[in-house]
Design a protein around this nucleic acid. Structure first.
Lengths: 148, 148
DNA sequence: GCTTACGTTGACGTAAACGTAAACCTCGGC
DNA sequence: GCCGAGGTTTACGTTTACGTCAACGTAAGC
């Protein structure tokens, strides 16, 4: 059940693979342990156990980063799960690959719409910014001085 | 050609400004009237009334588009309200403009982070797509044929 | 004058995404 | 031998963003 022989073999040639506790990852990604456990309940991540404690590998850590990036982009956890399933999908058969191809193209299209939305909003607020700068310059005020 | 002259319109009579009902906007933007009323409850939009019925002007319509774009980008209604307040902010005084400048710059920075997230995700799924295409080509299958 | 379509205001229900509190284990240090 | 720091599960609470009635008003068409 243990992997002592493997560990011993690797401990000489390889650096011992680093792992993280739930609190470490929570601090690093600025979320709570509760949130991470919640993602696990939803099947978005599945760390190993050491006794009852969760142990996160570098792969788990990357997955968490993936999840949180998805959240920042406005996807629900359900959508993120589908995307993770897609990203880590079974790529063994032709039909599977066809499915991956179709879904990834769909997702890219969704993302590109989001990209257009984002560009438009950035452009609008750049205009707001430019007008504000111009207004202050016209008044002879340095827009970069931050004195109240 | 079909566009009537602005000058002619002004000299005689203004074209009657078009307005929309809640159901019309709901259909156009693919949301429910309930959602639009909810945004109004939250102070994100404030249409005129004709009796008890809500009447939306072109400006209200644009505002609704703004709200929904914000949602697609992953902002909460509270955040969208702040952004709308910023966008339509009082720009009369120096202090107000300073505030607008500071907040719009902050918001642009947030959006640009989102842009980086988005580009990264698009790049990843483009790779997934490319690998799928390559896999099918290697098998002598046309990736564009959609036969099951 | 009755139906149909569309509007209104409550009021309550619900799914998602956690927060919070309780009760417990467990391990290294004093 | 106990204590604090961290981990666990279970369960109920909370916020957000609406959905879903219910009960009502009103203007149009037959």
């Amino acid at each position: 059940m243990t992997q002592t022989s493997l560990d011993a073999d690797r401990s000489i040639a390889r650096a011992p693979a680093r792992t993280w506790t739930i609190a470490e990852l929570a601090r690093e990604f600025n979320v709570t342990p509760r949130a991470i456990r919640f993602y696990e309940d939803g099947g978005l991540i599945a760390p190993m156990r050491q006794g009852t404690s969760r142990i996160y590998t570098a792969g788990d850590r990357a997955r968490l980063g993936w999840i949180l990036r998805g959240k920042r982009l406005g996807f629900s956890l359900g959508e993120i799960r589908e995307l993770l399933d897609l990203y880590y999908a079974d790529r063994s058969g032709v039909q599977q690959i066809r499915g991956v191809l179709r879904k990834s193209r769909q997702h890219i299209a969704d993302l590109e719409k989001k990209l257009r939305d984002l560009r438009a909003q950035i452009a609008e607020f750049r205009e707001v910014e430019a007008h504000a700068v111009q207004f202050l310059r016209d008044k002879g005020i340095d827009p970069e001085s931050d004195d109240r």
